[in-house]
Design a protein around this nucleic acid. Structure first.
Lengths: 240, 240
DNA sequence: GGCCGTCTGTGCGCCAGCGCCCATTGCAAC
DNA sequence: GTTGCAATGGGCGCTGGCGCACAGACGGCC
């Protein structure tokens, strides 16, 4: 996608809206910056807005009583942050943090709910996206149980890059460790392995993918499952 | 709850329906047996019905390519099996298996969808339940990452018992191991520890809880989070 | 009452990831 | 350029859970 003008259609959910709905909704959206590390929602706190990431990535992560954390899902330009607003719960026990800086389209919670109850295309899109989010969470649970850190690192990298439509990522190993819920040193080792295999280069927070097929071969099935399910639920053609 | 007559209100979602909706919906439900091990849905296969467990428990579990498995959520009389029908995806990449035999109320998928699109109380209940299910999945992911098998065993036991409104469970260690995605021997050890601590008795597939507060103290925070979130989203009073 | 299959308990060696500590290396700000 | 700090890379010993193999123990069935 061209970097050019910001436009709501950079977000795939918004892009999938029919013209009539888009005309009604787009004027309600606000284009806002998403600085790295910014906390959009805190666990248990009432949300006022939802966010449709355009050029940013948001992590949904769970912070435990002892401070340990784990990411449960990644949201980028394929989705929306704040599903609990239309699901009815208003809050969730998780935190939403900007993982990769950029921009997003912000929408007032009440406006979203009004639109949702019209039971039109937006409702359909939101529900289908929510299902894909559930798949991602479920897969994260499975992956945490069964797969090696190397595999999880690759999965995480691929999922993140897909959501940026890029093959570069700015992210320290420390942050990745927080996301994956592992030691920083563990990420150092995993990243080192992948780098030695010639699949990426990693220099002080800058990851570049050299061999994407190689990465996909190295990761576990979890990545493919999540991707396939998203494609199935929300087919997106870039040219739309 | 009295064991007496089967009645849809044994399921908390159905019980929460206002009289008018209940009168419309209940006649469409079919009271069906749920034999142990019965597979309600297979990964990727179109679903024809949803199930409201009354006296049974259903595990949503993920089976990997190599045969390893992991449970991502437990559904009992507090919920419904088959959320992807109204979420729009029709299928999920997971499998639904009866984990504790009993009965459930079955509802035709199309009837459910018709009701859902009325945007009445049933829709609200279903969406809120789905959110609680997401919490459970997320918590499972976190728990898999950070907590010991002992803690996970306690969490699993408590979640299961809550969904049976009982303090006894019929379940071999082999099955529990499949659910938790660990070795059978691991479960033997965890169960042994908990039994030696005087919190349960375990005899050839029959688990009885002796000291419930003790169990709750021994498990991780994950149990409380899931329970609290369910109570918040779907408050249920037994006398309703 | 005896047999058999299922379920449970235990004992190895093994390894991935943890917690802790410190060495090195770039980038950036002055 | 120098200095300072964030970021990365490695080296310990430790432990929880794995894979495997086998020994009891209970329960149902004939």
């Amino acid at each position: 996608m061209a970097q050019s003008e910001p436009h709501p259609r950079q977000n795939h959910l918004l892009a999938a809206l029919p013209a009539a709905d888009a005309e009604r909704i787009f004027p309600q959206l606000e284009y806002v910056p998403m600085p790295l590390g910014h906390v959009l929602y805190e666990s248990g706190i009432q949300m006022r807005h939802v966010y449709f990431p355009a050029t940013s990535i948001v992590s949904l992560l769970y912070v435990m009583e002892d401070g340990a954390s784990a990411e449960i899902a990644i949201v980028g330009n394929e989705g929306i942050v704040g599903v609990s607003l239309f699901m009815g719960g208003e809050t969730t026990p998780s935190r939403a943090v900007v993982q990769s800086a950029g921009h997003a389209y912000r929408w007032a919670g009440q406006a979203l709910k009004n639109e949702f109850y019209l039971a039109g295309p937006m409702q359909r899109l939101l529900l289908r996206y929510t299902q894909s989010l559930m798949t991602q969470m479920a897969q994260t649970a499975v992956c945490n149980r069964h797969h090696t850190l190397d595999q999880q690192f690759c999965r995480w990298l691929l999922l993140s890059l897909d959501r940026l439509s890029s093959n570069e990522l700015v992210m320290t190993q420390e942050l990745i460790a927080n996301m994956l819920g592992v030691r920083r040193e563990g990420v150092t080792e995993a990243a080192g392995n992948v780098q030695r295999a010639g699949l990426i280069t990693y220099q002080r927070g800058h990851i570049s993918v050299i061999d994407r097929p190689g990465l996909e071969a190295r990761t576990c099935e979890c990545y493919a499952v999540v991707k396939k399910e998203l494609d199935r639920l929300l087919p997106y053609s870039d040219g739309l």
